[in-house]
Structures are given as structure tokens and as C-alpha cells.
Nucleic acid binder design. Structure first.
Length: 208
DNA sequence: GATAGGATGCTCT
DNA sequence: GAGCATCCTATCC
């Protein structure tokens, strides 16, 4: 186990992703407190990873990815969902770890209100957009320093608390590029891990 | 239980 | 204008 620090998060994204499993992410937005234990993450590289938002260089949206490690990157996708990432790697690299799922360990009642469609507590944060919704995260929270205890969103607990034999790996979910890279990491046999779905055609039509 | 298809709007080309 | 790091509902076992 390693103490959670900015320098520890500045390692490459695949190393940081595994280490983040078991870490607690807590938020106090809107006056309510919710904490989640991370059970599933995905690593995204910088300019060298075609699936990363940083692949095409720095833009207004992904600017925080190129900043120092330990900051929160939140983006809006599919016209309705927010997804949360932890910036990692050396400053200027553009690497990040997508937070895909977790177990709500505090503030379950609040999370239930934010996620009315969840049929049980395991589904409260099972999926990246669901995790962000359960914590109440939106684009307004992007750029928060997750290592600053005075901020409303922060990471706590040691890195690497899940033993390596309990960490499973596989391809990343829902991508259309570099989907085969095994940079998804999850806690083996944990019921809050999201179901795998391969990337597929989205809109408009019939194949051929 | 599994799978297929539609919703919806921001971002970059 | 096309594409998207998704979720929900309906439907069929």
C-alpha cells in the first residue's frame, strides 16, 4: 500500500488505475455527503492512446487532463451523461483514469434520491455516468483538486489496498478505437462492477 | 436472464 | 454535420 500523494498519481495511467481500486471518493456537493469505494476503473493514455480525449491534443474541454495529477476531469457525453476521471501521469502528459463503478459506503439515502432508477443499492454507482450522478458531480466540479481536503470532492485512503490477485483486467468498454487494449481494471467478483458492453453502432441506421 | 434500439446535446472537423 | 469513454426501456427467452 502506498500513501495517496500527487507524486504517486504521477505514475503512468495503467499503474495508477490499478492502485485506485479500493480508494474512497467522497463528495459534499449540494450540502449532502456521499462516499464511494472504487471497484472498477479504466486507464487512458495521453497523446499516444487513440481512445483518449487527449489524443487530438489540448482543447478547452480536456485542458485539465494536461495539468498536474490528482485533479478531477469531468466530461459530458451522449447528450445526457457526466463521467468523472482522475488526472494522472506527469504534467503535460494528458493521461487520466476513468472511474467506472464503485460501492456507495456513505450517504446511501442521498445516492438513492439522485439515482431513482436504481433497483437496488448495488446499482447506485454501477457505471461511469451512474457513479457521477450518485456523487452529484457535473462539469462544474471539473478541475477540482482531489487531494485538497478543503474541497467538496476528494480522494482518501491508501493506494493499492486491493491485492493484485484480486484485480482482474480486460478490454475497455464502449470504445470504437483501441478497444482491445486491456486497460480496464476491476475488483474480481465484486457485484458493483458494471457489465461489459462492446462498442457498437449508435445512431441512424442500419448496418449496410 | 440477455439483448437490441432509442434518447439527446456538446465537441471537434 | 458526424461522432460520442452511456443509460433506460421493451421485449424475448
Amino acid at each position: 500500500m502506498v500513501r495517496l500523494s500527487r507524486s504517486a498519481l504521477a505514475e503512468s495511467s495503467d499503474v495508477v488505475a490499478q492502485a485506485l481500486l479500493g480508494v474512497i471518493l467522497e463528495s459534499e456537493v449540494g450540502g449532502a455527503r456521499v462516499a464511494i469505494r472504487l471497484t472498477e476503473v479504466e486507464a487512458y493514455g495521453g497523446a499516444a492512446d487513440p481512445a483518449s480525449h487527449a489524443y487530438r491534443g489540448r482543447t478547452p474541454r480536456n485542458e485539465v487532463m494536461f495539468g498536474p495529477a490528482g485533479f478531477l476531469y469531468v466530461y459530458f457525453t451522449y447528450g445526457m451523461h457526466w463521467c468523472a476521471n482522475v488526472v494522472c501521469g506527469p504534467e503535460g502528459d494528458g493521461s487520466a483514469v476513468l472511474l467506472r463503478a464503485g460501492e456507495v459506503v456513505e450517504g446511501v439515502a442521498v445516492a438513492r434520491v439522485r439515482r431513482p432508477t436504481a433497483r437496488n443499492d448495488r446499482e447506485l454507482a454501477r457505471g461511469p455516468a451512474r457513479l457521477a450522478a450518485a456523487l452529484g458531480l457535473t462539469g462544474a466540479d471539473g478541475g477540482t483538486d482531489l487531494l485538497d481536503p478543503r474541497k467538496p470532492v476528494r480522494l482518501t485512503g491508501p493506494l493499492g489496498s486491493v491485492a493484485s490477485e484480486d484485480v482482474a483486467t480486460g478490454p475497455r468498454v464502449g470504445l470504437t478505437k483501441a478497444a482491445e487494449t486491456p486497460w480496464r481494471f476491476w475488483v474480481r467478483d465484486d457485484p458493483t462492477v458494471s457489465p461489459y458492453r462492446a462498442g457498437a453502432l449508435r445512431r441512424g441506421g442500419s448496418p449496410a
